[in-house]
């Protein structure tokens, strides 16, 4: 139909925020709290959602997703807890070193890839280390609705047990903490055994822990639908690349954080689109020449199309390599 004019931003909507508190919790983890400069309420969110924090780090933009860990019923703040990763790509170091109270930052609207199954009769949370953060919001949400939950939380040591004391004192009967350095471990098999029908298990932590929970639950006859883990699909930026558009007779640069479609629009090329999500097929574009690898992310083209490299969907897909010429 195309009832344009439209506002043609891609990706999740953004929210301007001010850093309202920076609270070091232990040697590794710091909580950052945000408010809105205009004093407006934040959009509500569902427990398990994350936000993508945009960091301006000396001319380069970093985009890191963090679970929202504040109480979803409190619209006045958003909070995240960030574990410093000295070996990582630098986002968490930037947060720890550079972000100060009063700084202006940008967050995306919440996106939830780890939601509660609201049909659950009982919710069992299994956290490893910083994996505790989404459960902080889930616990707050379930407490509001009198949900039935329990938490099993494995941390390295008492000193690194982020929020462990707070949780234990608030919910002494529901929270179980295990310290590695005291040779304590979650007794998963016993835990899975004997849970009432309709129980859901949620795991957030290191990959090994997630795999262990899925495998053990399957061995004990648990349906996969009842075992949830966060699949962290970070937003999908990519390396900048150059494209020649032969009909328009221009060569354009696609930046790290924009899509090929957005780059074309920025350069004044009138490119078709409807969904901007790789589903409708409108933006399908013929490839004239390519020397490199396509990063196809659409649901429109089939596997053969993806393999043969003759077509690309500019709203979501990218390219890595030397030359790309499109029939546009």
């Amino acid at each position: 139909m195309t009832a344009a004019p439209q506002n043609t931003k891609a990706g999740a909507e953004k929210i301007a925020v001010t850093v309202s508190a920076v609270v070091p919790l232990n040697d590794l983890v710091t909580r950052f709290e945000f408010t809105r400069p205009d004093g407006a309420a934040f959009p509500p969110f569902s427990a398990g959602a994350h936000t993508v924090v945009e960091m301006r780090d000396q001319g380069r933009t970093r985009l890191n997703p963090y679970s929202l860990m504040s109480d979803p019923s409190d619209p006045s703040i958003y909070a995240i807890s960030v574990r410093r990763d000295d070996q990582g790509r630098g986002g968490s170091l930037f947060m720890h070193r550079n972000v100060k109270v009063g700084d202006a930052m940008t967050l995306t609207y919440p996106v939830n890839l780890f939601s509660l199954d609201l049909r659950g009769r009982k919710h069992v949370f299994l956290a490893g280390g910083i994996g505790i953060t989404p459960f902080m919001a889930m616990i707050a949400q379930l407490e509001q609705s009198n949900g039935n939950w329990e938490l099993h939380y494995a941390c390295r040591s008492e000193a690194l047990g982020t929020y462990a004391d707070q949780l234990r004192s608030h919910y002494p009967n529901k929270v179980h903490v295990y310290f590695d350095d005291q040779n304590q471990a979650i007794g998963l098999e016993d835990l899975l055994d004997g849970q009432p029908l309709g129980t859901h298990v949620y795991v957030c932590g290191p990959k090994g822990m997630i795999d262990w929970v899925h495998t053990t639950a399957a061995e004990h006859g648990w349906p996969s639908e009842n075992v949830h883990s966060e699949e962290f699909l970070a937003p999908q930026p990519g390396k900048p690349f150059e494209v020649r558009l032969c009909k328009s007779d221009i060569t354009i640069q696609v930046g790290e954080h924009e899509s090929l479609l957005e780059a074309m629009e920025r350069c004044g090329v009138d490119a078709p689109f409807l969904c901007r999500g790789g589903a409708c097929g409108q933006c399908e574009t013929d490839v004239v020449e390519a020397d490199g690898e396509f990063v196809h992310r659409d649901h429109w083209l089939d596997d053969d199309d993806h393999a043969c490299g003759k077509k690309i969907m500019p709203c979501v897909s990218r390219f890595v390599g030397k030359t790309l010429v499109l029939d546009r």
């Binding site: 029908l197 004990h220 006859g221």
Partner: peptide, 10 residues
Amino acid sequence: VLSDAHMGLQ
């Protein structure tokens, strides 16, 4: 039977 069955029941 279902009311006090446990997860893992086939």
